[in-house]
């Protein structure tokens, strides 16, 4: 086993990695186009718009047609990357995502920007914490929440090569780089950030590095925590989750999303039916109040200390 994953000192906005990866792909493949809803700047696509002015389709503030158009572009041989605030992309255009993209199985990449509570101060209309639950039942729609800039770029590149619909849930929240030896992006597979034997902490997207920090808090108390970066929410890596249920005594999921139906919901469904162990789901209980993203993370317990406390509580239940 390699040394436990570390996090780099600096913090990055993953949108930069997304925009760079898309431009590189576009230079190599003229089928790749971007579709936006007046979201060029918020998607960090200003440079793309300058370099490929004819390959950026701005439909205006109109999410239904944005998603429908992307299905049509795929019919016409293009590989569209639809980039918009995830709250509107998934909420406003949900039926288009279902019928035109997932059910019709078009080769379209949906890029949900500023997901979770990145727009915390703007209120629940602009939070995107329901998207995992909305999209996860659409069986052929691959749902991925990258944890850092490296994983963001890898997921964008993988999505371009995958012939089918993908939802990438990106964030503008600054995150550290996960420093993993010989790192390989494997869609649909959990990434083992740290081996452990008492409890398993499962993060995704912006919460994976927090889960890793929680493991250090637990280590200081003599508790060995396994940490998984579960970037792919759909399909879930059943093998890794059931192994965690088998080999450790409890599981804690951590997501920048509603705990109803998202990562925690997916893990609950799986272990309840196969290998029940105490489970704690850290995330948002439903609509949350207004506040900065950092404040909301602290208020709702998406912190290393709270995750560690929840892990200890789950381990306590496991003794009964």
């Amino acid at each position: 086993m390699a040394a436990p994953t570390q996090t780099a000192a600096g913090l990055s906005d993953c949108r930069t990695a997304w925009a760079k990866a898309l431009a590189e792909l576009a230079r190599a493949d003229d089928r790749i186009v971007a579709v936006v809803n007046d979201s060029v700047g918020s998607s960090k696509l200003d440079a793309f718009a300058k370099e490929f002015p004819d390959r950026l389709i701005n439909v205006g503030i109109a999410e239904q047609v944005m998603v429908g158009v992307s299905a049509g572009l795929a019919n016409g041989g293009k590989v569209p990357f639809v980039s918009a605030a995830s709250c509107f992309l998934t909420g406003r255009a949900l039926e288009q995502v279902k019928a035109d993209i997932a059910y019709a199985n078009f080769n379209v990449k949906l890029i949900g920007q500023s997901s979770g509570v990145a727009y915390g101060e703007l209120g629940a209309t602009h939070h995107s914490i329901e998207d995992f639950a909305w999209l996860r039942p659409m069986t052929n729609l691959i749902v991925i929440a990258p944890a850092d800039p490296w994983e963001t770029a890898e997921a964008v590149k993988w999505a371009a090569g995958h012939d089918g619909p993908v939802y990438l849930r990106l964030s503008r929240m600054p995150v550290p780089d996960l420093v993993v030896e010989d790192r390989v992006f494997r869609p649909g597979k959990a990434e083992l950030l740290q081996q452990g034997s008492d409890v398993t902490l499962i993060g995704a997207g912006t919460t994976s590095h927090i889960a890793l920090a929680a493991a250090q808090v637990l280590a200081a108390q003599g508790v060995s925590a396994r940490v998984l970066n579960m970037a792919t929410i759909n399909p879930l890596d059943d093998v890794a989750v059931l192994a965690a249920a088998e080999e450790t005594r409890a599981i804690v999921t951590v997501e920048e999303a509603s705990v109803r139906g998202g990562l925690g919901g997916a893990v609950a469904e799986l272990i309840t039916a196969n290998r029940p162990v105490p489970l704690e789901r850290v995330g948002f209980p439903g609509f949350v109040v207004t506040g900065s993203a950092d404040w909301l993370f602290a208020e709702y317990g998406l912190t290393a200390d709270n995750i560690a406390a929840r892990a200890l509580a789950a381990l306590e239940r496991a003794k009964r």
């Binding site: 429908g68 992307s70 299905a71 795929a74 016409g76 019928a99 035109d100 059910y103 078009f106």
Partner: peptide, 21 residues
């Protein structure tokens, strides 16, 4: 060419096809 049924879906998809062309 595309899955339809819920109304108001085919026209936006056709628009995308025309843009691609």
């Amino acid at each position: 060419e595309t899955n339809t049924g819920p109304l108001g879906h085919g026209f936006p998809v056709a628009l995308g096809i025309a843009i691609a062309g």
